[in-house]
Amino acid sequence: MLLSASALASERGADWQIGPEIRGKNYSVGVPRVMADSDDGPAFVFPADPRGQVKYVTRETGSLANARSLTIRYRIDASEGTRFVANERPSSPAMISLYFQRRGDNWSAKNRHASYRWYSVSDKTLPLTPGEHTITLNFRDEWGAVMGAQSRGNPAFEDALENAERVGFVFGWSGGRGHGVHATGPARFTLLDFEIR
């Protein structure tokens, strides 16, 4: 079932899980398990401690086999001088990427599970900066799998779309899309719109 922009804009923050949670452990640290409700949409505050990090923000979805694109519109409010830091590679720009995941992923990234998680490629990611931003990615554009496989002409990509379980966005750097980000000062992320067409 496809989720419309208007439906998602009115949904509760609790529909958006901050994680990932794998075998009972949440790998985002220093943030709640779900986004909070706000007047403008679901929101969270970035951890301002280098020991904290936000990695994946996802919600359940059905099959994406008939979908054409994903669009996210979001706003980052941050105090002056606040920087965003990729925990794994602090010297690289901290980025946001679109993301979806196939049902049945065991998070090993091995064998068939190496193509269960798909991320927007470099030209469809954005460095984290204050302000309002939009990213749109067509499902016929190039996507990258967790272990580097490309989507174009790849049956595993089509299988992941058909059997999609979660969709959303991740924080990290260009070489580790969902490997975590923190801020150096007060900073808030608000999801203004998330559309599956």
Rank of each mutant, 00 (worst) to 15 (best):
M1D: 08
A5M: 10
A5K: 14
A7F: 15
S10G: 13
G13N: 05
G13V: 01
G13W: 00
G13L: 03
D15F: 09
W16M: 01
Q17H: 12
Q17V: 13
Q17A: 15
G19P: 04
G19N: 02
E21S: 14
E21Y: 08
E21I: 12
I22T: 10
R23D: 14
G24S: 00
G24W: 04
N26W: 06
Y27C: 04
Y27V: 05
Y27F: 11
V29Q: 08
G30H: 01
V31C: 03
P32T: 04
M35A: 13
M35I: 05
A36P: 01
D37R: 01
S38K: 10
D39R: 05
D40R: 08
G41V: 04
G41F: 02
P42T: 11
A43L: 14
F44P: 00
A48D: 04
P50F: 11
R51N: 14
G52F: 09
Q53F: 07
K55Q: 10
K55D: 05
Y56R: 13
Y56G: 10
Y56F: 10
V57S: 06
T58H: 07
R59Q: 09
E60N: 14
G62S: 06
S63E: 07
L64N: 08
A65G: 04
N66K: 11
N66D: 14
R68K: 14
L70P: 06
T71W: 06
I72D: 05
R73K: 09
Y74G: 02
R75W: 08
R75P: 11
R75S: 10
D77L: 12
S79I: 09
G81Q: 03
R83V: 14
F84I: 05
F84T: 01
F84A: 04
F84Y: 05
N87Q: 13
R89V: 13
S91R: 11
S92M: 11
A94Q: 05
A94I: 02
M95R: 15
I96D: 00
S97K: 01
L98C: 12
L98H: 06
Y99W: 12
Y99D: 05
Y99L: 07
R103M: 04
W107T: 09
S108H: 06
S108W: 02
A109P: 01
K110E: 15
N111D: 15
R112Y: 11
R112T: 15
A114T: 12
A114E: 15
S120P: 03
V121H: 09
S122D: 14
D123L: 10
K124E: 00
T125G: 00
T125Y: 03
L128T: 02
L128W: 03
L128E: 05
P130F: 06
P130D: 00
H133Y: 05
I135W: 02
T136E: 03
L137Y: 05
L137C: 10
L137F: 02
L137A: 11
R140Q: 13
W143V: 01
G144M: 10
G144P: 04
V146Q: 11
M147W: 00
G148I: 06
A149Q: 14
Q150R: 14
Q150V: 09
R152S: 09
R152M: 04
R152F: 01
P155V: 01
F157R: 14
E158L: 13
E158K: 14
D159V: 07
E162A: 14
A164N: 03
E165I: 10
F171R: 08
S174Y: 11
G175D: 14
G176F: 01
R177A: 10
G178L: 00
G180M: 03
V181A: 03
G185L: 08
P186Q: 12
L192T: 00
I196V: 15
